[in-house]
């Protein structure tokens, strides 16, 4: 199956801003087992651990526009952190399809789709880039 490259560069509509609550950060930290970030920072605001950035997603829009080849999985992520996320911040997500390619692995021939999400806060600061690497096993292929 040839990869349809026409979706590369496809931009998705920005999400509605999500207001980060101290409760959401606490729930994330409790599950992660991270005590450090529950203490307020110097300005009094609760600061989320860097990995909290990956909790903002717009996969529904993504899967609506990109082909599904079968069972999909998260194959990995590449995340750049530019500014901390604090309780009270309002985070907006914009996303674009960066790459689509095929390779073979333990699960057979697979199509990879890399979607870059950019997180922006209420001050217009770029908070993080999150490159989501999704993998879909190609139907009808061995493995």
């Amino acid at each position: 199956m040839a990869v349809d490259q026409s979706l590369i560069g496809k931009q998705f509509e920005a999400t509605e801003p999500v207001v980060v609550t101290s409760e959401a950060i606490a729930a994330y930290c409790d599950a992660l087992g991270d005590e450090n970030y529950r203490r307020p920072g110097p300005d009094g605001a609760i600061v989320a651990p860097p990995s909290f950035a990956v909790t903002f997603r717009n996969t529904e829009a993504f899967f609506h526009y990109t082909p599904r080849f079968g069972r999909g999985f998260d194959a990995g992520k590449e995340v750049e952190f530019f500014a901390p996320i604090r309780a009270g911040d309002s985070i907006t997500l914009t996303s674009v399809v960066r790459e689509m390619y095929e390779k073979t692995g333990r699960s057979g021939t697979m199509t990879f789709v890399v979607l870059r999400s950019t997180l922006t806060n209420q001050r217009g600061e770029t908070v993080a880039h999150v490159d989501h690497r999704f993998v879909h096993r190609n139907p009808g292929e061995p493995g």
Binding site: T104, G105, R106, S107, G108, P142, G143
Partner: peptide, 9 residues
């Protein structure tokens, strides 16, 4: 010996 991408299978 690896599934799919190895000779054995």
């Amino acid at each position: 010996g690896r599934p799919t991408v190895g000779l054995c299978e």
